[in-house]
Amino acid sequence: MDYGVREPARLGRTQLLDGRRLGWAEWGPADGTPVLLCPGAATSRWLGFGGGVVDSTGIRLISVDRPGLGASDPAPGRTLTSWAADIRHLIQDRALRAPSAVGFSQGAPFALALAANGLVNAVAVVSGSDELAHPRFTYTLTPQVRDMVDAVAADPDAAEASFASFGRADTLWDLITTTSPEADRAVYTEPVFQHAFRRAMDEAFSQSPAGYARDTVLAMDRWPFDPADIAVPADLWYGQQDTSPVHSPDLGESLAQMIPTATRHLLPAVAGSLLWTHAEAVLRTLVAHVR
């Protein structure tokens, strides 16, 4: 089965105003419609999606490593707001005209931060994490996730140190493959996909676990923006068979009600890996908003 993972067409790093560099990978035509990808937890720019779609649809897919992961320099204490500032510079420096964004899993709040800050013309959340610290989820989180949210609220620095001590590519790979439903495991362990996934994870931790730990703190904390302020089209894609405890507990239902421009796509026979199993639908729906 071909899940659309391909070698990047282009790799590079963009220098920011403070001297840090952001690493990125691209697929598709260099003059195509730009789509920024915010990858999932503990992965890096190496794992793209829609490799069999981007050329035929004229999409320039750009996956960006968050600071401290992969090829992006660290930014201790970074926030979702500072992330948006970094991407603002990347968009200007690389002349990405009218970009849109995709956020997969833990990349969702990072993509939504771009939309809330007016940096993209459309956004897609795919099997996305939600604002887990929001009161609407007080009674619906699993005990383990509730403990993580409470730890960040009580002492974010201590929580970050704890996440760093846990963060290892092998540890997280074992967690993913042992807790995912069979529909997702079939995707993740397919040999070509597994090689790409493991390489992306290995590069994510190539500097240290600090980038992963900071990402996790931001994912477990309150968001510094109001989803109600998002004014661009927002597609929320979820599979009804998704069992991940760190994805949206209600599969995007309440988030869709909070974002005035949201359309929720709930696929009944699909699990959390739909970024790769339904890449064409995600991308065609997204770019239709900006073309």
Rank of each mutant, 00 (worst) to 15 (best):
G23P: 02
R185H: 10
W24I: 01
A288L: 13
A164H: 05
L119Y: 09
L90D: 11
M148G: 08
A161Q: 15
V152C: 01
S180V: 14
Q194F: 05
L37T: 01
F205T: 11
R198Q: 15
N121R: 15
W173S: 05
D147F: 01
Y212K: 02
A269T: 14
V270M: 11
T277G: 11
G58H: 07
A269G: 14
G12V: 08
R222D: 15
W83Y: 14
A122K: 03
W173E: 12
A25V: 12
D184S: 13
T140C: 01
A204F: 01
A200Q: 04
A154I: 11
Q207C: 05
P8D: 01
P67G: 09
D73F: 03
V125R: 00
W276Y: 14
Q92L: 09
F193K: 08
T285D: 08
D250L: 09
L286H: 07
L236S: 10
L96P: 12
A116M: 08
T177S: 04
T138H: 13
G28L: 09
Y3P: 10
T179G: 09
V54F: 09
P109Q: 05
L61G: 00
A281K: 09
V54E: 06
S129M: 07
L69C: 10
V290K: 00
P156K: 12
L17I: 13
G12M: 12
A71W: 15
G12L: 03
S127V: 02
P143H: 02
H195E: 14
S44A: 07
L36Q: 00
A183T: 15
E26S: 13
D157Q: 14
A279M: 08
P99Y: 00
L114M: 14
G4H: 03
G118D: 07
Q194K: 14
F104R: 00
D157H: 12
T79Q: 10
W223R: 10
L114K: 02
R214I: 00
V35W: 04
I230M: 10
V125T: 14
G28N: 03
V126C: 13
S44K: 00
G23N: 02
V53H: 00
F225M: 08
I87M: 15
V232T: 09
E160C: 14
G107H: 06
E253K: 04
V53Y: 02
V64C: 08
D221V: 08
H289P: 13
L61N: 03
S273C: 13
T178V: 04
L36S: 03
G167L: 05
L69W: 03
V149K: 00
L11Y: 01
A153P: 08
A256H: 01
D229C: 05
V64W: 04
H134T: 06
S248N: 07
N121L: 07
G128K: 11
